[in-house]
Structure formats: C-alpha cells, structure tokens
C-alpha cells in the first residue's frame, strides 16, 4: 500500500500490458471450479442424477428389451445414450442457465463488468467448467453402464468419432442456449423453477425415459424441434448396434439432420444470447 500509483504516462511507457483473454479464461476456469465444488448440493446433483436414473431404470426394467417389429436391444443399452444426452444437457444448458441467472442476480456479473476482465474470459471460464464437469459425469455414467449393466462399449474408431462430435456439438449448443436462456428468469431464486420444467419435459418427450419409437407421433414431432432428441439419437448411433437403426422413426441414424438441428440451435442461441445478455438485473435498469 505504501507504493504510490505510477502516473499515467509512466504506465504507458513502462509497456504494462493487460493480461491476455486466454490466460484470464484459465484463471476463470480455476475459480469457477473452486466455487463449483464448494456448492455441495449442486455437485451431488450434477454427478449423481444421471447415475441414479440409470440405476433405477436399468434395475426396474432389467431383463427387458426395448423392441419393435421383432427387433430389440437390452433396456440398459437403449437407456444409456439417452442418459448421456441428458447429462450433457444438465451440465451445459441447465447448470449454465441457472448459474448465470444467479450471478446476474447476486451482482457477480456487475462486479466483473466493472473490472478489465474481458467478457470472453468470463465465458471461457464457464466453458472450461462445463467441459470438465461433462467429461467427468459422462465417464462415470459409461463406467457404471459397462461394469454393472454390461452395456457393450463400441470398439471401432468411427463410433467414437461420432461420439466425439455429438458430444462436442451437443455441449456447445447446450452451453450457448444456456447463456441465452439465463436472461429469462426474473431472479436468481426463480431460475431453477424456470429452467427445470423445460429440461424435465424435454427428457420425457425426447426418448430418454421412454423409447422414442413408442411415443405418439405428435410428441415425436414436437421433440424433433428441440436438441435433446437429436443428441439422444446421435448417442444411440454410438452405443447401439448398427441394425438398431430400424428402431428409429426414420429408419436411419440421421447424422446429417442431427448436425443440422444442433447447429441451428447453436446459431439461434448465439444470436439470442448476444442480443439479450445483460450484466445487470432487470430492476437495475
């Protein structure tokens, strides 16, 4: 404190550089992680929800197949891709839509806005946190399915390549839509109440809890507008045998359509997010 501030021109001539946005993004990831692991209930929810669902459904329907027209796959094997997709949506879309709404409400965003922290570094931090949590959560789920429920893991490179792009595109789209959606709740307190029903309804109509082919066709049509259905379908193309395509409504995995719908939501989320993102609460002008 004893040192006096260098005058302006001294700062300029000393060539003091602002820290890079990338380095600050890494700092932000670190601080986001610390804050995240200390919110014990959130950690428990994020990591155990897909596992508990997997255990419940795989146990209740153990020994049964999801089958139609004489072709079937074991229940756990059909359920796993839907749960992987749901997990991605939880860690990206739901957690971000809620946490940004809370941070807007409690003043975190306004405080950061008052510093030279670049906006992109804030989002780098969010993306870093989401990537890490999603990877951990998906890994736990795959290990559980493979070891306890004997779900076969794909052995070929092309399946894992499909997994990689669906995972990355799904996480990115979920993240960006989460940022856009965070402007909707009026307060931090209402954030969970606003976000959860959306997520829950999508899980029911997108072929996560029930086999997608068994749903009424109007419900299938509605679900086809939203990303979760396509993420689940994309993950089924990874974890189900090639022949299981006959269980899909279209009779194929529709990778092109999956990429197109997820990509479209990514663009829509980006446009809406950029237009609606606010650093301050609504009642704060």
């Amino acid at each position: 404190m004893s040192a006096t501030a260098p005058p302006d021109d001294a700062r300029a001539t000393a060539g003091l550089r602002l820290p890079s946005a990338a380095r600050l993004g890494i700092d932000r990831t670190g601080i986001e992680l610390r804050a995240f692991v200390r919110e014990r209930d959130a950690v428990i929810f994020i990591f155990t929800y897909p596992l508990i669902m997997m255990v419940i459904f795989a146990t209740v329907f153990s020994g049964q197949d999801q089958s139609a027209d004489g072709y079937g796959v074991p229940f756990a094997q059909y359920f796993l891709p839907g749960m992987v997709a749901t997990g991605i949506m939880l860690t990206s879309f739901q957690s971000l839509a809620t946490s940004i709404a809370v941070e807007r409400d409690d003043g975190t965003l306004k405080r950061l806005r008052a510093t030279p922290l670049p906006a992109v570094s804030y989002f780098y931090g969010k993306i870093g946190l989401i990537l890490l949590t999603t990877i951990v959560q998906t890994s736990l789920l795959l290990v559980l399915a493979a070891t306890v429920y004997d779900v076969p893991m794909p052995a070929d490179v092309s399946s894992w390549a499909t997994f990689a792009w669906v995972f990355v595109l799904g996480t990115t789209t979920g993240t960006i839509c989460g940022v856009a959606f965070s402007s909707l709740p009026r307060s931090g307190k209402s954030a969970t109440a606003v976000v959860t029903p959306v997520v829950l309804v999508l899980q029911f109509i997108s072929g996560v809890f029930f086999a997608f082919f068994a749903l009424p066709s109007w419900m299938q049509t509605v679900a086809s507008v939203f990303p979760l259905k396509w993420m689940a379908q994309g993950m089924r193309s990874v974890f189900l045998p090639h022949d299981a395509q006959v269980l899909e409504v279209a009779g194929t995995w529709q990778h092109g359509a999956t990429a197109a719908v997820l990509g479209a939501w990514l663009v829509v989320g980006l446009v809406v997010g950029i237009r609606t993102f606010r650093w301050r609460r609504r009642d704060d002008g």
């Binding site: 700062r11 820290p19 601080i31 804050a35 200390r38 003043g107």
Partner: peptide, 24 residues
C-alpha cells in the same frame, strides 16, 4: 454485495489482482 460467497478472501483478492496490468 452478496456475490461469490463460496470463495475465500484470499482467493478473491488474488483472482481480481490478476485482471490488472499493474495490480497491488
């Protein structure tokens, strides 16, 4: 102010110091 409640005093001060070119 009621933000970033899970972080400690030292973590926050160090983190914010990193935002500036010539911080204290």
């Amino acid at each position: 102010s009621r933000d970033q409640v899970e972080l400690t005093v030292r973590e926050l001060v160090r983190h914010f110091a990193g935002f500036y070119p010539a911080g204290r």
